[in-house]
Design a protein around this nucleic acid. Structure first.
Length: 432
RNA sequence: GGAGGGAUGACAGAGCGGCCGAAUGUUCCGGUCUUGAAAACCGGCGUGGGUUUUCCCACCGUGGGUUCAAAUCCCACUCCCUCCGCCA
């Protein structure tokens, strides 16, 4: 959540920043009004409380000395106590309202985040394709590569969407044979690339409501997630959720920062807002495997952490030989918790589309404040910054690889970097 | 799932219902001493909020309750440990 102290200090700055992402001015003002009211009620309740404590001390004193005024004091304390409970109740009500509204406010966009209200105004910052570094122009794709992955997949028997749907409903993909093996190889490839600097974590695939709150996925995006109400659990939509809560409530020494973690997990998304869109193949699915990179860092380190995650995600794409572009998301297209986000999209020739396969974000202290993760240095205690990004999300990568690698004979050539993870195999053979 | 034990500050570990936000030890920080270090000695050392420099409030696993007054009593829950059962 945003910093209430900052909102008090610089209300106009907050108003202007949030207006960039389309938050109505009234939403901000409502929070300010509630905050003023809350502080007034809190002071009232606390001074009554102080009076009760004072009287109670006097009661003890009087009784020790056997003074008859103890009874009177006791009665008065009871009266003040009733008043206090009433005042406290009103204060708590306002506080709950305040908190609820504060949690609904998104993060302030970074000054360098481009203006714009939706994805049409995202800014393409660069593009890469195999051979570009050697001066070659963008690749021409053959007709063999202009076949959608769902067609290739059924031809080769490596993806079985019908059976996935039979088991779990539509948009739950089922990979098989070399297709399943490919997913496993991709995860192993990525994890090995990151192990020099990121501690590998294998977290639970479910999270408590409190854990979902910390990243900002709740309360706002409840409809986009799978819920297990009986146990107050949610299926994680990304490993960002458990990783952000790894150090929840802790104070770490500044010298330990940055703390970097990586995790490969399944990610579950209801995609409620996108029902009916991109439903074919792997363009949009309810479950996919993803490798996530995450860092808790010092406010001075966020840019390095951000650049590192981005460089690693791009490095994987280059290793895989996929054409991709980098988009700087505009203020209006930012996720709730993010101050700055860069998306990576791969070009997939069979469907002729750019597919989002990574999102690298800097959250400033927005998530750290919710998760209460702080660091201590000579000056005192402060919230850490969080940075994370996918490196990478495999379902769409899988589609792009299969489409890009398809040859005239119908077989699929896989990138060399994966051969070590595929027992030397380079090709998914066409069915004879 | 059953039986028992436990949860207090960075750690260890006290705490008759009434100056307990909390003893003590360790760690850590500053100082004295020392050529330097260690030891010894002296001092300091939780977090958040409100007010603002005088203070006030909250927090002793979580949530309720009893009481003039709760770390301390009662209830529920969570987690951890030991034992039994079950099991990938």
């Amino acid at each position: 959540m945003i910093d209430l102290a900052q909102l008090r200090r610089e209300p106009d700055l907050v108003r202007v920043a949030l207006a960039r992402r389309g938050v109505p001015e009234e939403q901000v003002s409502a929070v300010i009004t509630l905050d003023v009211e809350h502080r007034r009620l809190l002071q009232e309740a606390e001074s009554l409380r102080a009076r009760v404590k004072e009287l109670s001390r006097e009661v003890g004193e009087a009784r020790r000395l056997g003074q008859p005024r103890a009874e009177e004091l006791q009665d008065e304390s009871r009266r003040v106590g009733d008043e206090e409970r009433f005042a406290r109740g009103r204060s708590d009500e306002v506080a709950a309202d305040l908190r609820a509204r504060l949690l609904m406010l998104p993060n302030l966009p970074s000054p360098e985040t481009p203006d714009g209200l939706d994805e049409r105004e995202n800014v393409e910052v660069r593009r890469w394709w195999p051979g570009m570094d050697e001066g070659h122009s963008a690749p021409e794709y053959s007709s063999a590569q202009r076949v959608a992955h769902w067609d290739i997949a059924s031809e080769l028997g490596i993806l079985d969407l019908e059976t996935g749907a039979k088991l779990a409903g539509s948009m739950f993909p089922l990979f098989r044979g070399d297709g399943a093996r490919l997913v496993r190889a991709l995860t192993a490839y990525a994890m090995d690339q990151h192990r020099d600097a990121y501690e590998e974590i294998r977290p639970p695939s479910v999270a408590l409501t409190e854990t979902m709150m910390s990243t900002g996925h709740l309360p706002k995006s409840a409809d986009d997630m799978y819920e297990i109400p009986r146990d107050d659990l949610w299926l994680i939509p990304t490993a960002e959720v458990p990783l952000t809560s790894l150090r929840r409530g802790e104070i770490v020494e500044a010298g330990q920062l940055p703390l970097r973690y990586t995790a490969a997990t399944a990610c579950f998304r209801r995609e409620a807002g996108a029902a009916g869109r991109d439903t074919r193949g792997l363009l949009r699915v309810h479950e996919f495997d993803k490798v996530e990179l995450f860092a808790y860092c010092h406010p001075d380190q966020w840019r390095d952490a951000f650049e590192d995650v981005l460089a690693r995600a791009e490095g994987l794409l280059r290793g895989l030989g996929l054409t991709y572009r980098v988009l700087d998301l505009c203020a209006g297209d930012l996720g709730t918790s993010s101050a700055r986000t860069v998306d990576l999209e791969v070009y997939s020739p069979g469907v002729d589309r750019w597919l989002e396969v990574s999102s690298v974000s800097w959250f400033r202290d927005f998530q750290a404040r919710r998760a209460n993760v702080r660091f201590r240095d000579a000056e005192g205690i402060h919230f850490v910054h969080t940075v994370n990004g996918s490196a990478l999300a495999w379902a769409r990568i899988w589609a792009a690889l299969v489409e890009t690698g398809r040859r005239e004979d119908g077989s699929v050539l896989l990138p060399e970097v994966l051969s070590g993870y595929l027992g030397g195999q380079r090709v998914i053979a066409a069915k004879g």
